[in-house]
Design a binder for these strands. Structure first.
Lengths: 295, 295
DNA sequence: TATTATTACGTTAGGCGTAAAGATT
DNA sequence: AATCTTTACGCCTAACGTAATAATA
């Protein structure tokens, strides 16, 4: 039977044109190549080489054999990759969220609940998420609004409310609530990678400019050094302290308060179990302390 | 790297469901199977089995691996077959002739001219032959009429003339020439596998019946035992003797005399060389003795 | 008890590298 | 002389089979 190692050496020889070259490319000795070429020839059962006393070259059949070898090797590599990918997919739960904040509580819970699995998470467009969950492209989705779908389980589990942070010397300081309409026209510092909030802000305050900061350190520095407005929410308080000269004013528009929904396939038992745990935890969490977190 | 032998053992295990079964199916020992399954598992780099103390079964990933193994094995077998077929094709010259008689002289000549090649011949419809030669489906064609075609070499090399054999007591006996029109309506013994002659006879003598004989012995017996007419030609005299009570009367219609043409691709050097040899031989042949041969 | 997988062990075949030879440019 | 393939030789890994072990139904 053919041997994949032999085929690899055959293609190496085809690439180099000389046994010596192929040998050093593969970090093996020339005699090994000579032997392998003989073996592969008898494996195929037909002559593949034109042999000069000092020269070995592929004949026409040999070129065919090389071409075939390449496809077989590609098939083998593909098989290996496919199986590994399948295994990885089987042992990871992929989460796609419309915003980062819900992940801060969801991911630790999932880790606790599925200690043998790798958890991968990413942000995605809310509009895409239901189809991706339904199609198996990911296992769990986090949405800012309910989604219906055949075989989908959708469960509210967390609320997040947007506030704006103003410096004490800012014209808006002292207000105890604000609306998007009142904020429209002011310029904001905005963190990158905040999911659907970006779009929401741009739509709600079309007259404002948003200075998107990719780097966290830059963002924090700008908070201190400027009087620009920025956003924060009531969730995930531990990551960041609000500077002392800033005050936090809630935004009262209904869109500024979001209820996150957990989404998974009903057929996915593990995720449904996680959903149950989430439902239990939701009550406790709302009783816990809330700090603020900058967006 | 994956090993095709290992993959084969994996699929055998998948087919049998048990190492013991697979072992005897493959004529190897169980421990070998155990080892191979471990090796294939570490080749893929992911677990493929659920292991009970007394039971080994494929897990979900394992089933994937088996499926992949089958495709890789199929690719490997396909590669082997393809290369072998290519080699065979490269070392055979395929001849397709419109009739058997020209092969009697052509095949020996080709053998002499290409001693390292296998020569395969078959009969084909004259209408198909030019396209098959041009397309490489065969290397040499023998036609009863000229064919044009880009890159095709077409060379007349042999004539064959049809006669009819009548018994001394037959009404047509004593004639020294005949036409299809005169023969139309009589019944004939006709050998099978005579190429385009069959169609020619049926078209030229639509009122006749042709008793087609596949077996040569049967045909010879019927010649002796009946007064039925049959055909012969001036070619390839050595194969058969004409019974003493039969006389041979030439058919004078122009279609009854055929000039065979040798057809090959101009790009095929070996066949062009053979064509040259044929051209040389054509002269000698026409000077040689002619006997008759039954169709 | 019969069946099956795994481990242990001794043997052997086959593959590799070094070294030398043969041949070509 | 330099380059390349092939042959020769010795080592050693690794794959195999037998036999023993363990565990299950």
């Amino acid at each position: 039977m053919l041997d994949l190692n032999d085929l690899e050496q055959l293609t190496a020889f085809a690439d180099c044109g000389t046994l010596t070259g192929a040998a050093e490319a593969l970090h093996i000795s020339q005699p090994t190549l000579t032997r392998t070429m003989k073996r592969v020839e008898e494996d195929f059962g037909v002559p593949l080489f034109r042999r000069g006393k000092n020269r070995l070259e592929l004949n026409e059949t040999g070129l065919q054999a090389v071409a075939q070898a390449r496809t077989v090797l590609a098939a083998a590599r593909g098989a290996e990759a496919q199986v590994r990918a399948f295994h990885a997919r089987l042992h990871t739960v992929a989460v796609e969220s419309c915003a980062p904040a819900p992940l801060w509580s969801l991911l630790p819970l999932l880790s606790r609940h599925m200690p043998d699995r790798t958890i991968s998470s990413s942000l995605a467009e809310p509009a895409d998420i239901p189809a991706r969950v339904a199609g198996g492209a990911c296992d769990i989705g986090v949405l800012p609004w309910p989604a219906e779908g055949e075989g989908l389980l959708c469960l509210p589990f967390l609320r997040e409310s947007l506030s704006v942070c103003v410096r004490s010397d800012h014209p808006l300081a002292g207000r105890n609530s604000l609306t998007f309409a009142e904020l429209n026209g002011f310029n904001f510092l905005l963190r990158a990678e905040i999911g659907f909030w970006t779009g929401l802000c741009r739509r709600s305050m079309p007259a404002s400019r948003f200075l998107v900061q990719t780097d966290e350190q830059d963002f924090l520095e700008l908070i201190r050094a400027s009087s620009l407005l920025f956003f924060t929410t009531d969730l995930a308080s531990d990551t960041m302290e609000l500077p002392p000269d800033r005050e936090r004013i809630p935004i009262t528009d209904p869109e500024a308060s979001v209820t996150y929904l957990f989404l998974c396939r009903r057929s996915n038992k593990t995720c449904r179990a996680a959903a149950e745990a989430l439902r239990g935890q939701a009550g406790q969490k709302s009783a816990g302390a809330k700090k603020s977190e900058a967006l």
